[in-house]
């Protein structure tokens, strides 16, 4: 038991380092594709370290929610990572932990948006409504997709869902495809969501945060992106072998390259397009869930 705990902590140490580095890798790849040299790979890490060293500031007299939102988001993400095996195969688990992870993911977006609304800044409110509508659509889709895997495996234990093993069923393959799309969507990548959404809404949901608070908010967003990628990877790569750390590292790098390439070739859309796409995808995924329950 103690080893499981130590292993899970080692995992957390790894992901805290890996999340900014992967973002740096993606920035580098996007720069290469645009014929630029691009920032060095640890650039995002430097940015975050700089932000954490600056004092956080408050404007006006914001509520408690605004002040604690980035920290709650961050803790939520770190706790969620305790239940997902990442580099090492260790993770905490109990029956129903998938519901806990789902709750942590959903709550974190809502907390950030509510903290932002409480500032009263019109840009922040616009950003928050946008964030909430996107996260409603995204989290619904996450819920349905996870339910597919739960129905296929007939288990609420998160580690028992990983990986998908033969005999392959139609619903689990379709669920995997939907989840891969979902990882792209929930990783706040271009046609779907841009939390910084710079020119349009001047920073969106995180507009009022500065210094340390901003650092934690950005860090948590990166962690969320890696969390989704990790769940997807766990569904694909073989676990409990000596090579699973290598599989994991190669996997996240491959997905980073793939997703940043797609992102580089996609433009910005109005938010309705993203929402209507997710609505259609949710309907299709609902059908897959029915298939999974029926045993296909």
């Amino acid at each position: 038991m103690i080893w499981v705990f130590i292993g899970a902590l080692a995992n957390i140490g790894f992901i805290l380092l890996a999340a900014p580095l992967l973002d740096g890798l993606e920035r580098k790849i996007k720069a290469w594709l645009q014929n630029r040299r691009g920032p060095p790979i640890p650039q995002t890490l430097y940015d975050i370290v700089k932000l954490l060293r600056k004092p956080g500031g408050l404007t006006g007299n914001p509520g408690l929610l605004y002040r604690i939102a980035p920290y709650m988001f961050f803790t939520n993400m770190v706790i969620a990572f305790l239940f997902i095996p990442t580099l090492l195969d260790y993770s905490l688990s109990f029956i129903g932990d998938i519901i806990v992870v789902y709750y942590l993911i959903t709550a974190s977006s809502i907390i950030l948006a509510m903290g932002s609304i409480s500032t009263g800044n019109p840009f922040a409110i616009t950003g928050s409504t946008r964030e909430i509508s996107l996260s409603m659509a995204g989290k619904l889709l996450t819920g349905i997709t996870l339910a597919i895997f739960v129905a296929v495996n007939k288990s609420f234990l998160i580690t028992s869902l990983f990986p998908i093993i033969p005999p392959y069923r139609l619903s689990s393959i379709l669920g995997l495809i939907v989840f891969a799309i979902l990882v792209y969507i929930e990783g706040f990548r271009l046609p779907f969501d841009i939390p910084e959404a710079e020119p349009e809404i001047a920073g969106g949901v995180i507009i009022e945060y500065t210094g340390r608070d901003l650092g934690f908010a950005i860090y948590s967003l990166l962690l969320k992106r890696l969390l989704y990628t990790s769940i997807l990877l766990n569904l694909v790569i073989p676990r409990y072998t000596v090579f699973s750390p290598i599989y994991y590292i190669v996997g996240v790098i491959v997905f980073s390259i793939l997703f940043s390439t797609i992102e580089c070739f996609s433009g910005r859309h109005r938010i309705e397009y993203a929402l209507s796409f997710m609505k259609k995808l949710s309907l299709a995924t609902g059908v897959v869930l029915v298939l999974a329950v029926l045993g296909y």
């Binding site: 691009g38 060095p40 940015d47 001047a202 995180i206 507009i207």
Partner: peptide
């Protein structure tokens, strides 16, 4: 733009003054 490419020095244009250095 690609030629001067200030991003390689870690310079980033941000939309909110609260994020800026």
């Amino acid at each position: 733009a690609p030629r001067p490419d200030a991003e390689r020095f870690g310079v980033k244009l941000v939309g909110s003054p609260r994020h800026a250095d």
